[in-house]
């Protein structure tokens, strides 16, 4: 046996890959240049940041509008998760390519893509215009976002189900609704509950933000405190938001473990 095989033959990088990496580096340099980064700016920024952090201490929890804001965020998160996931079920059933003809599933996918493309806060801006300031706009905005997200995940879950059970249900002479209720839903219900828990967690995070555009919740309180330069109050609100989000994340994990 001739020993002509060397290490390089196996691990030689391809020209195409090198070109992609080179292109990536050029892009990064270009994109970094557009950010307007300069040493002097960073230095000054860090100075401001230090002053800022000093303004945060001690955090102020005493103002009375923290608790109502937090509770309103919770209300927005719960209600939008309920409406969003309920609406997502029919949308997902319509979008699943293994259940519906192509034309129908495309229209479902269009709805999902549309709902998913816009950040909840952008939807909230439009919702505030449509139904005025307050929690209702937040609920509508997060509901639309939830339809997009849960709809997509659920549609994918439905596309992965086993055909055998559907065939078995169909062989008993079940109607279309019968197939959906006894053949499709039981196969995805546990994953669906996981998605609901995940989406509730995501809605909780976003419900703390929609207030920035006037759609209710703690975000409005935070934004106005920020504009008043009331930094110790800002610190108090941010700590409360972090605590709320952490609790949400833990609860989501608990729910997922229960329904595994």
């Amino acid at each position: 046996m001739s020993a002509t095989v060397t290490r390089d033959d196996f691990f030689a990088p391809s020209i195409g890959r090198r070109l992609i990496y080179a292109g990536l580096i050029v892009y990064v340099v270009y994109a970094a240049a557009t950010l307007g980064l300069s040493l002097e700016r960073i230095e000054r920024g860090i100075g401001y940041g230090a002053r800022f952090l000093a303004g945060f201490f001690p955090p102020d929890f005493t103002k009375s509008d923290i608790l109502p804001g937090l509770l309103e965020s919770l209300q927005i998160a719960f209600l939008s998760s309920l409406f969003g996931t309920l609406l997502a079920i029919p949308v997902a059933l319509v979008s699943a390519r293994n259940l519906m003809p192509r034309v129908v599933s495309w229209s479902g996918r269009l709805i999902i893509t549309f709902c998913r493309s816009f950040h909840p806060v952008i939807i909230a801006i439009i919702a505030v215009k449509a139904i005025g300031f307050g929690a209702a706009a937040g609920v509508v905005a997060l509901t639309i976002a939830s339809v997009g997200f849960v709809g997509k995940l659920l549609a994918e879950a439905i596309e992965e189900i086993s055909e055998k059970q559907i065939e078995a249900v169909r062989a008993t002479g079940a109607s279309f609704m019968g197939v959906i209720v006894f053949g499709v839903i039981p196969q995805v219900v546990n994953r669906f509950i996981g998605f609901v828990a995940y989406e509730t967690d995501a809605n909780l995070r976003n419900s703390t933000m929609v207030g920035v555009v006037g759609a209710g919740g703690i975000g409005g309180t935070l934004f106005s405190a920020f504009q008043r330069f009331d930094y110790d109050f800002v610190a108090g609100i941010v700590i409360c938001i972090i605590a709320l989000v952490m609790v949400g994340e833990v609860l989501q994990l608990v729910v997922k473990r229960v329904f595994r």
């Binding site: 950010l35 307007g36 700016r41 960073i42 920024g45 860090i46 401001y48 940041g49 800022f52 806060v121 995070r205 976003n206 703390t208 933000m209 920035v212 975000g219 935070l222 934004f223 920020f226 941010v238 938001i241 972090i242 989000v245 952490m246 994340e249």
Partner: peptide
Amino acid sequence: SIPTLIWALFFVAMFGPG
């Protein structure tokens, strides 16, 4: 746990808008 918009508020205050 800190939403993007809150991070953005901080960094705008630090480095100016942009």
